[in-house]
């Protein structure tokens, strides 16, 4: 840069070295970590695109010579899972019909819970909240059998709605905490102003709070979609083979002991199962980050 004012010594923007020790360390570490996480994914994708002869050759790091989508088709529509041989497609739709009501119901209830706990403090609300949060720390395994009994008593054992109820209940502590903290971070005066303006419990919730809460709803949705979609334990315990979710079917495909192990089909099936949370994350990742950093909402 030209020195317009004839100044001597350091001036203006401080120059930075591209190849400083810090930068090498930083990018070096990042590259190693990225490589470490991407390698399994690479193996899965390439293997799923190979035919069985190529896999048997044993070079798992090689790119596929003959790209074939056969394994994907087979995983989706004809792979055998226990009794049925119609692939993961059945499990996919089962998972969707478990996921949608579970996510909607748990978020709807938890957001109202959080709103009430944050804004409409009632006698014992703190105790109630503490108990609810405590629920998040009890291991699932302890509650498996009691829930079996409860579901049997109300006649929901083995049904889709039974599983929906279980997912909704288990999502409650963490989601309520999430929503309560978010609503607490919203300015209190906004709530007061709405009360002076004559809005009631639901009026304030729907017209004032909800429109300000998109980020936290996205966060809750991501947490729930990922959690419920990836759930295996509840799915295998509280449902029956007709309505097994995708994860259970995936297990049945991958762990089948009969015949040849079709690695390419297994890889394709696994990728297919993981696709939904992945898409949700990429579609709403920005909002997710924004919601985690919430609290910066100013009138």
């Amino acid at each position: 840069m030209q020195n317009k004012y004839n100044l001597e010594g350091p001036q203006g923007t401080k120059p930075r070295k591209r190849l400083s020790g810090t930068n090498i360390m930083l990018y070096g570490t990042l590259l190693v970590v990225a490589f470490y996480y991407l390698l399994p994914l690479y193996v899965m994708v390439t293997t799923s695109l190979k035919g069985m002869p190529e896999i048997r050759a044993g070079n798992i790091f090689d790119l596929p010579v003959d790209i074939t989508f056969e394994p994907w088709v087979k995983a989706w529509s004809t792979a055998c899972t226990g009794l049925n041989c119609d692939g993961l497609s059945r499990g996919f739709w089962n998972s969707v019909s478990i996921l949608v009501p579970s996510v909607a119901l748990s978020i709807a209830i938890a957001s109202v819970n959080g709103y009430a706990l944050a804004n409409w403090k009632f006698k014992g609300s703190e105790v109630f909240f503490t108990i609810l949060i405590f629920g998040a720390f009890i291991p699932y395994q302890v509650m498996l059998y009691p829930i079996v009994i409860l579901l049997r008593e109300v006649g929901l054992m083995g049904s889709l709605w039974g599983l929906v109820v279980v997912h909704t209940i288990f999502g409650m502590p963490i989601l309520t905490l999430l929503f309560r903290n978010y609503f607490t971070s919203l300015p209190d005066e906004l709530f007061k102003a709405a009360r002076v303006d004559g809005a009631g419990f639901w009026g304030i919730y729907f017209q004032v709070m909800l429109p300000m809460s998109l980020p936290i709803f996205v966060v809750a949705m991501i947490i729930q979609v990922t959690g419920i979609w990836n759930d295996f334990l509840f799915g295998v315990i509280y449902t029956k083979p007709d309505i097994y979710p995708m994860t259970v079917q995936l297990n049945n495909i991958v762990n089948s002991v009969q015949g040849v192990k079709e690695y390419n089909v297994n890889m394709a099936a696994t990728l297919l199962t993981g696709l939904v949370p992945l898409i949700i994350y990429f579609a709403s990742g920005k909002l997710f980050v924004r919601g985690i950093a919430a609290g910066a909402v100013k009138g």
Binding site: L190, K192, A193, A194, V196, P211, K298
Partner: peptide, 21 residues
């Protein structure tokens, strides 16, 4: 009485405007 029934209007320090309206 409820705040809205008291015949009062209130102005807050942080304005407390509904941001989405």
């Amino acid at each position: 009485a409820e705040p809205s029934e008291r015949g009062i209007g209130m102005v807050f320090q942080s304005y407390a405007l509904y941001p989405q309206m």
